[in-house]
């Protein structure tokens, strides 16, 4: 099914269909990931691939165009590149251990240590969270920085035009079609609350079950985006003004890095959460994980909302009828 979806994407011309297919592709892969025991990853892939990136792609289409024009140049050179790459990869698989083999190096070298040691060193049931936030916590700090970079990058690229538009005094833009829809508004209000609650659950329960700061951040952002879509951009921005979003974006990274820096002062290495409770390192680890996940959550929420604001504030090229 994945292959079919992917190949359809190659052949389809309608960008709208392509975007939808890419969402389908993500969902299908999320399913596959679950069967491969990667529940955390599946959760994230579904939230990101099928959720956020589809929304972003649609947002972009609204600002650009719906159809792809056929390419006139020969598809042969790209085909050769791809075939060579694929051949190299297949060549690489020749000495790979069989799928699922417990004797593979990947299964025998570092990974058993994580599984054996994390219960008493970190004391968090979800091993993935333990590695993510502590053993390899520095990678996750880097990842948060990547999100931060993307966030301010998008702002640096497309925030600027807003002022120009303000001058036009265009108020119609703010008025969404759905504004007068009473039921929709009530349901949305309820739903937004529920989504936020769920986000908080995912945020603080990430050490027990799949989930964590990133997923929570995405869900939280979805709540705001939904509010914005149903009501209007102006109204979300009253609840969560852009300047506050910018502060949040930075704040999350600062919380994360700050947690790490704190350990300096107690004489520990950077990001060694044992510093938070030197007598009981595993408690310290737990606090540390909660703190940094909070940092991740805040930054991700901030960035997603900021990106939504940036996209939504631009005058769309396509009117609603054209969809």
């Amino acid at each position: 099914m994945l292959v079919t979806t992917a190949i359809t994407v190659v052949r389809t011309r309608s960008l709208f269909a392509i975007v939808m297919l890419s969402g389908v592709f993500s969902l299908l892969s999320a399913l596959l990931l679950v069967t491969l025991d990667a529940v955390d990853v599946a959760f994230t892939e579904a939230a990101v691939g099928a959720g956020i990136s589809t929304v972003l792609l649609l947002g972009t289409l609204a600002l650009t165009s719906r159809f792809e024009r056929p390419v006139r140049r020969s598809p042969l050179p790209p085909l050769i590149v791809v075939l060579v790459t694929g051949a190299a990869l297949i060549y690489g698989t020749m000495d790979m251990p069989n799928f699922g083999s417990p004797e593979a190096p990947a299964q025998t070298h570092v990974s058993p240590d994580y599984i054996q040691r994390s219960p008493h060193e970190i004391g968090v049931p979800n091993i993935v969270t333990g590695i993510l936030a502590s053993y390899r916590g520095y990678d996750t700090l880097g990842e948060t920085a990547v999100v931060f970079t993307a966030g301010i990058g998008v702002l640096a690229l497309i925030r600027l035009l807003r002022r120009r538009r303000d001058g036009e005094g265009n108020t119609k833009e703010g008025a969404s079609l759905m504004r007068h829809h009473l039921i929709l508004r009530v349901v949305t209000k309820l739903l937004v609350g529920l989504i936020m609650l769920f986000a908080l659950y995912v945020q603080f329960h990430g050490d027990y079950s799949p989930g964590g700061g990133f997923q929570a951040g995405v869900i939280m952002a979805v709540a705001f985006i939904l509010y914005g879509v149903v009501f209007s951009l102006d109204q979300v921005q009253m609840v969560l003004p852009p300047w506050l979003v910018h502060k949040l974006v930075a704040l999350g990274v600062l919380i994360y890095a700050g947690t790490g820096i704190y350990s300096f002062f107690v004489g520990f290495n950077f990001l060694d959460y044992s510093a938070l409770n030197p007598q009981h390192p595993e408690h310290g680890q737990h606090y540390g994980i909660l703190l940094v996940e909070l940092g991740v959550g805040i930054t991700v929420t901030g960035v997603m909302v900021a990106i939504y604001y940036a996209f939504a504030a631009r005058p769309p090229i396509l009117s609603d009828e054209e969809w």
Partner: peptide, 26 residues
């Protein structure tokens, strides 16, 4: 248990991916 390490790496990579996507779209 399945190996948790690739999961961690891929979580990071997914996030990096969406970051790149959003920049590209912008």
């Amino acid at each position: 248990y399945s190996n948790p390490l690739p999961h961690v790496l891929i979580l990071t990579a997914i996030v990096v991916g969406i970051a790149t996507t959003s920049l590209g779209l912008a």
